[in-house]
Design a protein around this nucleic acid. Structure first.
Length: 226
DNA sequence: ACCCAGGGTCATA
DNA sequence: TATGACCATGGG
């Protein structure tokens, strides 16, 4: 345990999260105009760089197709052509249309604003193409919920920080549950935390990390791995 | 010519 | 329940 000067102890995980958010100061990290746009981006970005997603989103916007009504009724071949830059066209076309059909069934997505997060998450997970990570991203950035996203970046980082047992890092849900338990009531902005973790992972401690500039290098544990 | 990215589904064992 | 193939584009 680290000690806070002269006062109470703060768990390493909590301190690390606060520090990371402070360093990156992310605001409006997920660019989108509507809830539905966030959902489209969340599907398109699966295993894909954001730059490619942005190109696909521009094509969709240009075609006036960034809404549930158009996407659900568009010819699959046409939709696939529009989202081509994001890769996996046929797969993502199916997922987008399933999602658009679901959103259309809801009517206005604003109606979901009052639903309990756990129930909304369950509903999202029932939609074809939405798994744990995509659901949590949608909860964070489309519905403004405080949800921890236990993606690969997060688990790699948590592992390096050494403040989470290795056993829970293996599965998405185990990790999410653990962190949720540690952070609840801590008033840490989880959407901002995810953005900071991703930026940190991409810019500084990626697969071929160059931690020399890493502001957390003394805590990050990257060098301890060697 | 490889390798990978802000994953999920489906088929096997 | 736990792995692995598969999707497919653009950038390094």
């Amino acid at each position: 345990m680290t000690r806070q000067a002269g006062s109470r102890q703060v768990a390493p995980l909590i301190a690390a999260c606060r520090r990371l958010i402070d360093i990156y100061e992310v605001d409006g990290w997920w660019p989108a105009r509507t809830r539905f746009e966030v959902m489209v981006g969340a599907v398109l970005v699966q295993n894909t760089r954001w730059a490619n997603v942005a190109a696909a989103m521009r094509a969709l916007r240009g075609a006036g197709a960034l809404n549930a009504g158009v996407i659900s009724t568009l010819d699959p071949a046409d939709l696939a052509a529009l989202i081509r830059p994001a890769g996996c066209q046929s797969v993502k076309t199916r997922r987008l249309q399933a999602m658009a059909a679901w959103a259309g069934g809801v009517g206005n997505l604003r109606r979901l604003a009052g639903i309990e997060t756990v129930r909304l998450r369950h509903a999202l997970l029932g939609v074809h193409g939405i798994g744990y990570e995509t659901a949590d991203a949608i909860l964070c950035y489309a519905f403004d919920r405080q949800q921890f996203i236990a993606d690969k970046y997060a688990r790699t980082w948590l592992g390096r920080m050494g403040c989470v047992p290795q056993s829970v890092l293996r599965s998405y849900e185990a990790c999410r549950h653990h962190v949720e338990g540690e952070l609840h009531c801590e008033r840490i902005d989880l959407p901002a935390l995810h953005a900071a973790i991703v930026l940190h992972g991409q810019a500084i401690c990626g697969p071929q990390p160059a931690c020399t500039q890493c502001a957390l290098r003394d805590q990050c544990g990257y060098f301890r791995e060697r």
